[in-house]
């Protein structure tokens, strides 16, 4: 058999193979060797990991997104939230419900995402922490739910499992002046589905107010990809 070692495989061919792995595998490929890195960092390899309509997404961004390669763009989109919609302030209600929808087309395939509600509590916030709020995520047949308490005091606590089967989550400070709470996580297998995210507190009829909502942020959870998770 002739010596056609893969060292002589064209970079483009190798990039093609890497483009079918995952962002994590592609990053790790860059450490195999210098030649492997050129293939693993190429736009050809990373094009597949970006949402198919990333051009539209970044064109809707409030601040301009600049990048020199597709890999750099992926890093930016994963590490810095992209604010597409503006914020809203809740004056006072008794029935609180926030819903968000996004198509998985706008997200990277083969990636586990966490959805986070990004908020602030105004100094005069009231009525929000009386009862736990319900949060849920639905993607196709997959559904996850949990409960959260909207209290400042519980900011630093870790997630705790509760008897109801769901997960109880708490508010965390983001370091940018906003607070966030995880609504849930899901795995995007690359097929086109609608992600429905919901936050609600409708059981307590007390008045609630002082909630400032920046939006719902989706970002990859860089834990292991659990394939076939859904």
């Amino acid at each position: 058999m002739a010596e056609t070692r893969l060292e002589t495989l064209p970079e483009e061919c190798l990039s093609h193979v890497i483009s079918f792995t995952s962002p994590r595998d592609a990053c790790r490929s860059s450490i195999v060797s210098g030649m492997f890195r050129d293939a693993a960092d190429s736009d050809l390899a990373w094009e597949n990991f970006l949402p198919s309509d990333y051009r539209e997404i970044i064109s809707r961004s409030v601040s301009p997104v600049e990048f020199s390669s597709k890999k750099e763009l992926f890093r930016k989109l994963s590490s810095t939230p992209l604010l597409i919609d503006g914020g809203n302030k809740l004056i006072m209600v008794c029935w609180l419900e926030i819903r968000g929808k996004i198509n998985t087309r706008m997200l990277s395939p083969n990636t586990t995402y966490g959805a986070y509600l990004v908020i602030q509590l105004a100094g005069r916030a009231f009525g929000l922490g009386v009862l736990p709020s319900e949060v849920s995520i639905e993607v196709g047949d997959y559904k996850t739910r949990g409960t959260i308490y909207m209290n400042h005091e519980q900011c630093k606590r870790q997630e705790v499992d509760v008897l109801s089967g769901g997960v109880e989550r708490v508010l965390c400070a983001r370091g940018d002046g906003w607070l966030e709470v995880e609504l849930g996580e899901f795995y995007n297998d690359g097929s086109e589905k609608e992600v429905k995210m919901e936050f609600r507190e409708i059981k307590g009829e007390q008045l609630k107010g002082g909630l400032v909502v920046e939006g719902i942020e989706l970002r990859p959870k860089h834990s292991l990809n659990l394939e076939g998770f859904l």
């Binding site: 483009s19 792995t21 595998d25 292991l224």
Partner: peptide, 10 residues
């Protein structure tokens, strides 16, 4: 290429 990628994953 897809088959190779499946084997390379993780």
């Amino acid at each position: 290429a897809k088959k190779m990628a499946d084997i390379m994953k993780n």
